[in-house]
Computed example of a mutant assay.
Amino acid sequence: MCSLALLAEEEVGLPVVKLSPQIRSGAVEAQAYTDLACEELAGVNAESAAQQRALAIRKQQCLEQYRQFIPNTGLR
């Protein structure tokens, strides 16, 4: 019980950070697409224009990764 009183005394000295409500930016949403595995991209639907751009960029990155395994003898 004494340890709880000590913890309470220590917490009183900590600085208080007040946060105000903010509108979320598309950067957080775009970051979610860069973390997706290439195999999961087929089932993902983008809702906003920013999400569509981020998804297109991620699909292009995956295409570049797989392009190294495509033989150069195919028709172009």
Score class of each variant (00 low, 15 high):
33 Y>W: 09
35 D>L: 10
38 C>V: 04
45 N>P: 13
21 P>E: 11
48 S>P: 10
37 A>S: 08
14 L>V: 14
50 A>K: 03
74 G>F: 05
46 A>R: 01
24 R>P: 07
9 E>Q: 13
17 V>H: 01
4 L>D: 11
61 Q>F: 13
30 A>P: 07
41 L>H: 00
4 L>N: 12
18 K>S: 13
36 L>W: 06
38 C>G: 05
28 V>E: 11
59 K>H: 09
11 E>L: 12
49 A>Q: 14
65 Q>K: 15
42 A>M: 11
58 R>D: 04
76 R>G: 10
27 A>I: 09
25 S>V: 01
23 I>K: 06
24 R>F: 11
15 P>S: 01
2 C>A: 15
72 N>K: 15
45 N>L: 14
64 E>M: 05
43 G>Y: 05
1 M>I: 11
49 A>Y: 04
25 S>C: 03
1 M>L: 00
4 L>F: 11
37 A>F: 01
49 A>C: 03
7 L>K: 09
32 A>M: 07
64 E>H: 08
30 A>C: 14
11 E>R: 15
56 A>L: 08
34 T>G: 07
34 T>S: 06
20 S>T: 05
16 V>M: 00
69 F>Q: 12
2 C>S: 15
9 E>R: 14
73 T>L: 05
10 E>A: 14
75 L>I: 13
51 Q>T: 00
26 G>A: 01
4 L>W: 09
75 L>T: 14
23 I>F: 10
61 Q>G: 00
63 L>E: 02
67 R>Q: 13
41 L>Y: 02
56 A>M: 06
55 L>Q: 01
17 V>I: 07
49 A>F: 02
56 A>E: 00
47 E>T: 04
71 P>T: 08
30 A>R: 13
27 A>T: 10
62 C>P: 14
54 A>C: 10
15 P>I: 15
61 Q>N: 07
41 L>G: 00
13 G>R: 11
21 P>K: 08
21 P>N: 10
66 Y>E: 12
51 Q>P: 02
76 R>A: 10
40 E>M: 02
51 Q>N: 04
63 L>K: 01
38 C>Q: 05
62 C>F: 12
65 Q>V: 05
40 E>F: 03
10 E>Q: 09
47 E>K: 12
58 R>N: 00
52 Q>F: 05
32 A>T: 06
55 L>A: 07
71 P>F: 09
43 G>P: 00
58 R>L: 09
54 A>I: 03
35 D>I: 06
48 S>C: 06
43 G>F: 13
57 I>A: 06
6 L>K: 12
68 Q>E: 11
18 K>C: 12
22 Q>D: 06
1 M>Q: 08
57 I>H: 04
71 P>E: 13
32 A>P: 03
23 I>A: 12
55 L>V: 06
27 A>H: 04
64 E>K: 14
69 F>P: 03
30 A>T: 00
16 V>L: 09
29 E>R: 09
75 L>K: 15
45 N>G: 15
54 A>G: 06
7 L>V: 00
9 E>L: 13
60 Q>E: 13
29 E>N: 06
39 E>R: 10
33 Y>S: 01
